[in-house]
Computed example of a mutant assay.
Amino acid sequence: MIQLYGTPRSGNTHKVRMALTFLDLPWDERLTDAAARQSDAFAAITPMRQIPVYVETDRTLRDSQAILTYLAARHRPGDWDGRTPQERGEIALWLSHAANEIANGPATLRLARQFGATIAEAQAQAVTARFLPVIEAHLAQHRWLVGDRLTIADLSASPYLALVAEADIDLADWPAIGEWTDRIAALPGFPAMPGWPAHIAS
C-alpha cells in the first residue's frame, strides 16, 4: 500500500493526491503536521523533514515534482511526462516554475497570510507580479500547459495558483488561470482541497 505523508492544506501534497486519484491508485494518507515533521521518526523517513513524502514498499521519494515524475514514468509514460523531446522539455520548464516562481511567489504569500510565516514580502510580491502574466498569457492560448491534455505540468503548477485567493490575490484578475484551474477541478474524481473553489470540486 502506498503511503502519502502530508497535510490537507498543503498544495505540494495535493499535487501528489491528484496524481494518485487520477491514476486510481489506492493509498493511505498519513497526516504529518509541523510538530510531527520535527520528530526523529519522520526524520528517519526523510532527512529534509518536508512534505510530501511518498512511500511504496521499499521505495521512498520526497519532493512533489520528483514524485510526479516517478508516477508519470511508471503509470502514464508519454501521456503525462511528454511524448516528444519538445514536450518533455516544456514539462520540465513548468515543473521548474512550480518549484521556483510559484513556490517563491504566490505560495510564499499564502504561507504568510494563512499560517503567519515571516517572509520577504517585497521579493514574494515581485516574483508573483513577474510570473502571473507569463502563465496567464500562455493559458490564454492553450487549454493545458503542455500539449492537448493533462500532464504533470498541470498537476505541479495548479494547486498554489488555484489557492491565490488565500494569498490575497484576486483570481478574477487572471481569467485564463481561473478557467484552467476550473478545468482541472472538473476532471472526474478530482479530490477536493480546502480553499480550491468548492463549487467546482467533486
Rank of each mutant, 00 (worst) to 15 (best):
R110L: 13
R110A: 15
G116C: 08
A122H: 15
F115V: 04
Q125Y: 09
L161Y: 15
A153F: 12
A122T: 14
R143Q: 07
A153K: 05
A107F: 11
T151L: 01
A112K: 03
S158C: 07
L139S: 13
H142P: 05
A122P: 14
V134F: 09
A137R: 00
L139R: 02
T151C: 06
F131C: 01
D154G: 10
L145S: 08
A140F: 00
Q125A: 09
V134Y: 10
F115M: 02
D154R: 00
W144V: 05
Q125D: 08
V127K: 01
I135M: 00
A120S: 14
A162S: 08
R110H: 14
I135S: 05
W144Y: 11
Q114F: 14
V146P: 02
L139G: 11
L111G: 13
A129S: 07
A137V: 03
A117Q: 07
A112S: 10
T108A: 05
A140V: 01
R149M: 09
A153I: 05
F131L: 00
D148Y: 15
A162K: 00
L145D: 11
A122Q: 14
R110Y: 15
A117P: 10
P133Y: 02
H142M: 01
I135W: 02
A112I: 06
Y160I: 01
R113T: 13
A126E: 09
V127G: 09
R113P: 13
A124H: 03
D148Q: 14
D148K: 11
Q141R: 11
Q123W: 14
L155G: 08
A126Q: 06
E136Q: 04
L150T: 12
Q141K: 12
R143G: 13
G116T: 08
L132N: 03
L150N: 08
Q141W: 13
A162Q: 04
A124R: 01
D148T: 14
G147D: 04
P159Q: 01
A126G: 11
P159E: 02
D148L: 11
P133G: 01
F115A: 05
R143Y: 12
L139E: 05
A137Y: 00
L132G: 08
R149K: 07
G147V: 02
Q114P: 15
A107Y: 08
P133R: 02
R143M: 02
A117V: 11
Q114T: 15
L111P: 14
I152S: 08
F115S: 06
I119G: 10
L150S: 09
Y160T: 04
A137S: 06
Q123Y: 15
R113S: 15
Q114G: 15
R130V: 11
A126H: 09
A153D: 09
A107E: 07
Q114H: 14
A153V: 07
L145R: 05
S158A: 11
I119S: 07
L150C: 11
G147Q: 02
A129P: 06
Q114K: 13
Q114A: 15
H138L: 01
A157I: 03
L132F: 05
S156E: 03
Q114C: 15
H138C: 02
Q114I: 14
P133T: 02
A120L: 08
D154F: 12
A137E: 01
P159L: 00
L109K: 03
L111D: 12
A140G: 06
L145E: 07
R113E: 14
Q141V: 12
A122N: 14
A124E: 00
P159A: 02
E121C: 10
A117E: 10
Q141T: 13
